[in-house]
């Protein structure tokens, strides 16, 4: 599903973000990516949906060779990947429904497909009643659910989440985590960068720890093991 072979990433300003990462994430896995701030977690995640390019090494995602991927083909890769962020990235002037529909509209999906898929996705995250509500009138947890619905609406084979519970209180965070568990139960691969110690240590999954641009640990049912 996701494969990296000796991947290096140096930013133009000279910062060496990743120094020789080799990893293999199989279809249907649930993986936490942990590590101190600035250790390279974000870069690691961004490489997967081709937001950044590796300086060296090979990356395969869902059969795409990221290094050889032509610029024009990047959108095709991203249609197989759902992305969720700490700050939700919803459009403030669009309702919950419109925010989810937006993801389908901009890839040219037919209207009847949109009218069928969007309510399904909203119901799936438990927001069928809030379809016509603007993001500002939703709680943080609800906003993140809309973002998850938007990531799911196109039926991606992998969901990548960068600190999805970073802005949420513990109770709400658990709600969101249950959602990700359900996504994983459908067979969708989940890769989640997180700082949330309780979650990692309670909902035990594979843990990949990145420190100073290298894989420090890679354990099934691992623990958080950082102080913050």
């Amino acid at each position: 599903m996701i494969e990296m072979q000796d991947v290096w990433k140096q930013y133009p300003n000279g910062t060496m973000a990743l120094s020789g990462i080799t990893i293999n994430i199989k279809k249907g896995e649930f993986v936490y990516v942990v590590g101190p701030s600035g250790a390279g977690k974000s870069t690691f995640i961004k490489l997967m949906y081709r937001e950044e390019r590796p300086t060296k090494g090979q990356i395969f995602v869902n059969g795409f060779n990221i290094e050889r991927l032509r610029h024009r083909k990047i959108p095709l890769l991203r249609r197989h990947i759902g992305v969720v962020f700490q700050d939700f990235k919803l459009l403030p002037k669009l309702t919950a429904y419109e925010n989810v529909a937006f993801a389908l509209e901009v890839i040219g999906a037919p209207q009847r497909h949109i009218r069928r898929r969007v309510p399904e996705a909203l119901a799936w995250v438990g927001l069928e009643d809030k379809a016509d509500v603007l993001p500002t009138q939703l709680s943080g947890g609800e906003q993140q659910r809309v973002a998850v619905a938007r990531a799911l609406v196109n039926n991606p084979s992998v969901i990548i989440a960068d600190e999805p519970t970073g802005n949420l209180d513990p109770d709400t965070s658990w709600g969101i985590m249950k959602l990700f568990q359900r996504i994983n139960d459908r067979g969708t691969t989940v890769v989640m960068a997180t700082h949330n110690r309780d979650i990692v240590n309670t909902m035990r999954k594979r843990v990949i720890a990145i420190e100073e641009g290298r894989i420090a640990r890679d354990e099934q049912k691992g623990l958080y093991e950082y102080e913050d």
Partner: peptide
């Protein structure tokens, strides 16, 4: 810019943007 960012993330083609 926010719309453009999201369009890119969900796989809108360059010309669509």
């Amino acid at each position: 810019r926010r719309e453009i960012e999201i369009m890119k993330l969900v796989g809108a083609t360059n010309w669509f943007i």
